[in-house]
Amino acid sequence: MVRSEIQNVKLRFGIIGNAEGLNRAIDVAIQVASTDLSVLITGESGVGKENFPQIIHQFSRRKHGQYIAVNCGAIPEGTIDSELFGHEKGAFTGAISDRNGYFAEANGGTIFLDEVGELPLATQARLLRVLESGEFIKVGSSKVQKTDVRIVAATNVNLTKAIAEGRFREDLYYRLNTVPIKIPPLRERGDDI
Results as ranks from 00 to 15, higher is better:
E83W: 01
L131A: 11
F103R: 14
G134S: 13
H57L: 00
I183D: 04
E5G: 14
A91V: 01
K161G: 06
A106P: 07
N158W: 02
K143A: 02
S97M: 12
I80G: 06
K49S: 01
L113V: 01
T110F: 03
E5Q: 15
I183H: 05
I75C: 15
E44T: 08
L84W: 02
G94S: 06
I56Q: 09
S34K: 15
E115W: 03
E77N: 14
R129D: 07
F136Q: 06
A106S: 10
T147I: 01
F52W: 01
G90H: 09
I55M: 07
N177W: 05
S60L: 04
D171F: 05
G108M: 11
R189E: 06
L40T: 06
R99T: 00
G101D: 04
R99L: 06
D114M: 03
E44S: 07
N107L: 05
F92G: 12
A25Y: 03
V9P: 12
L131M: 13
L40R: 07
L172N: 12
E165P: 13
F13D: 12
E5L: 15
R12C: 06
R62N: 07
R129G: 03
A33F: 03
I80F: 05
N177T: 05
Q31R: 12
I55S: 09
I151N: 04
N8G: 11
I75Q: 15
E44F: 01
F168K: 13
S142V: 00
V152T: 07
E115D: 06
G14C: 01
T42S: 14
G109P: 09
V28Q: 02
N177F: 06
E135S: 05
E188R: 15
L127P: 13
P180T: 00
I96T: 14
L176P: 04
G94M: 11
A162E: 15
G190I: 00
Q31M: 03
T155G: 13
D98G: 13
V47W: 08
E88P: 14
V9T: 11
F112L: 08
Y173S: 04
R150C: 08
F92I: 00
N100C: 01
K146E: 12
G14R: 05
A91G: 08
N100H: 12
F52I: 02
L186I: 00
N8R: 10
R169E: 09
N156G: 08
I68P: 10
R61Q: 13
V32P: 05
R175N: 13
K146G: 10
A91F: 04
A162D: 15
G21W: 03
I151Y: 02
N8A: 10
A122K: 13
P76K: 02
A33T: 03
Q54I: 02
I151V: 14
I181S: 06
I137P: 13
E50T: 03
F59N: 08
R99M: 11
R169T: 10
A95F: 11
Y173D: 05
S141Q: 07
N107E: 10
L11Q: 15
V47E: 09
S142P: 00
P180E: 05
N158R: 09
G14Y: 01
I30P: 10
I6P: 15
T35Q: 01
E188Y: 14
Y102C: 09
F92S: 13
Q145A: 14
S34N: 12
A153Y: 12
K161N: 09
S133T: 03
T93V: 00
N177E: 13
I56H: 02
K138L: 06
S34M: 11
L11T: 13
L119F: 08
D191Q: 13
E83G: 02
